[in-house]
Design a protein around this nucleic acid. Structure first.
Lengths: 327, 327
DNA sequence: CTGTTAGCGCTTTCAA
DNA sequence: TTGAAAGCGCTAACAG
């Protein structure tokens, strides 16, 4: 910047005013042009570290994810990125325990870590405003979620209305609160319709294909086999279907399956998967909104856009004469 | 930090020495302890902006992606993150045109933007060292790639060895160089085995389900229909299979399909998908290595770990009497 | 309309 | 073994 000032024959502070976009400030057009030209010619790039140090604002918000390989979070991130960009902020996504060196890099933090990682988090809180993303925990930290309970109820009710009776739930890892809320939604919907919830029909599994496959395998060892399965995640639904196929049963003819989170892929599977679409993009948008507006007191914000059931071909009405296992 | 110094009754510079990990430097144990205690008690966090400004090193490397919703890049990112962390660097992932405000935030940049975005890139180059990731373009910028040509040849040869003759290729977008190199690998493998490459059997499509579906639909309008398809991407392979099914044909009985990039999902599809596994994780690791070692002159580094064919159930030998369309 | 000046929080000589 | 002091690149009073 000093160089630019020298070339343009003005003071550095003038360069700063002009380049910082203080456009309305009184600067002679000719001077401005001279500075702009000089900056251009020298290929000047403002140094973010210096600007951050001086203004104590990094114009960036951080997002810490458990893994990048997760469609759910990448959808949320897309929303967050758009909203941040609108306000001139950069969204910086990172994984792993990066929490140590974040002060002075980001102005606020979206945290989507696993439940077990609480300790690190708390240290950070008085350095940078933190918003728990897609998680609500009793840690005195503000958080934002979608209505997982309602989504689970939607899926469950769909299966009930199809006439199914032995409805199973492949639940997510119960140390993650989204999984707990989905299980709760399942239970409540079952209860509301007077359906019994059998313990043997609830199996906990990781949010991935392998987890879904293992859980479904256990469910298929039951006699009689469940008539329908609500999987707490789309990947576990895919794994479950794979297990069902491996037993020689068909979806939806023998067993109906609903997945959770509607991703592009669902439409192209065999059979195309019935899912619950959650407002994930909006979650990202609103999260950044909240962070940028100062957040307010530690409280849980719940996105009230209702989940939608996307009915495809993996669910069907109960068959008049359900197939029984051969004796 | 000033506060810590005051509480510990030493100079700020002493605090700096102790906290910056200059452990071996001569400091009285008692003094060190006093400083450590004070820092702990005050919840001191070093300010990255100040440190970056002073040392002109952000201890962070940036990674710009076209989208977070892409398994390929998230796999690369995972490798990059691990390697960066090993060296005490933070990996900051971002999407969109963040390129403007990166100086002073990152020490080097991994760039995986789409081909069309070249202009922005070049401006940046003299601010921060840049490495083109998974792309090789004649822009005088160093780049790193995996051997897409060899991977494509592997897939193609597999189909040829299975006895197929009308082998089609669902190529990726030809303005992306990975897609061009895969097409080239396909052509070369076909030529090497004396197979003709018919223009009608090469269809360009986006690297996603919808693209693969549309491309396969065009291929299925041909008469006779192809015996096998090599799709340049796993998502387009999934779309292609969906289109094949929609026509009442079966994979692999009627048509064999190979996808590109081996992701967890492939194993759980129906049928489980034969794919080519590329060393993507290693690509991420090596990319960071290169960046951290100063890079060297503009040149293309190609990861020479050979691709692997993962044979599953979506490919099968040519049937003795291939089914023909009804007249 | 433009220049002078102080200082953001830290590291790193240099001196004691 | 510790302190004093300068300065990284920038912004924002304040003065002129």
């Amino acid at each position: 910047m000093r160089d630019v000032a020298a070339v343009a024959r003005v003071d550095q502070s003038t360069v700063s005013r002009i380049l910082s976009g203080d456009d309305r400030l009184s600067v002679r057009a000719e001077t401005r042009q001279r500075v702009l030209d000089a900056a251009q010619r020298l290929g000047y790039r403002p140094n973010a570290a210096a600007r951050t140090l001086r203004t104590s604002s990094a114009m960036a918000i951080g997002m810490v994810l458990p893994s990048l390989q997760n469609v759910v979070y990448s959808t949320i991130a897309a929303g967050a990125q758009e909203r941040a960009a609108q306000s001139g902020y950069l969204l910086l996504v990172m994984t792993g325990d990066a929490l140590a060196s974040l002060a002075g890099r980001v102005d606020a933090l979206l945290l989507a870590i696993a439940t077990s990682e609480r300790p690190n988090l708390l240290e950070l809180r008085d350095t940078v405003p933190v918003l728990l993303l897609n998680r609500s925990e009793p840690w005195g930290v503000p958080s934002i979620t979608v209505d997982d309970g309602a989504g689970a109820a939607l899926a469950t009710t769909h299966l009930i209305e199809l006439g199914h009776e032995r409805i199973a739930h492949i639940a997510g890892p119960q140390n993650v609160d989204t999984a707990r809320r989905r299980l709760l939604g399942f239970r409540e919907a079952m209860a509301r319709h007077g359906q019994p919830v059998l313990d043997e029909l609830i199996v906990e599994a990781g949010y991935d294909e392998a987890g879904g496959q293992a859980a479904a395998a256990r469910l298929l060892d039951l006699d009689p086999v469940p008539q329908a399965i609500f999987a707490a995640n789309i990947m576990s639904a895919i794994g479950a279907i794979s297990a069902i196929r491996a037993r020689g049963l068909r979806v939806p003819d023998d067993i109906s399956v609903v997945g959770f989170h509607d991703v592009q892929l669902a439409e192209y599977l065999d059979p195309p998967l019935t899912t619950v679409r959650m407002p994930l993009h909006e979650l990202g948008v609103r999260a950044v909104d909240l962070l940028l507006s100062g957040g307010g007191e530690p409280a849980t914000t719940s996105i009230d856009t209702p989940p939608e059931l996307v009915t495809r071909a993996s669910t069907a009405p109960r068959r008049p004469a359900p197939r029984r296992r051969r004796a």
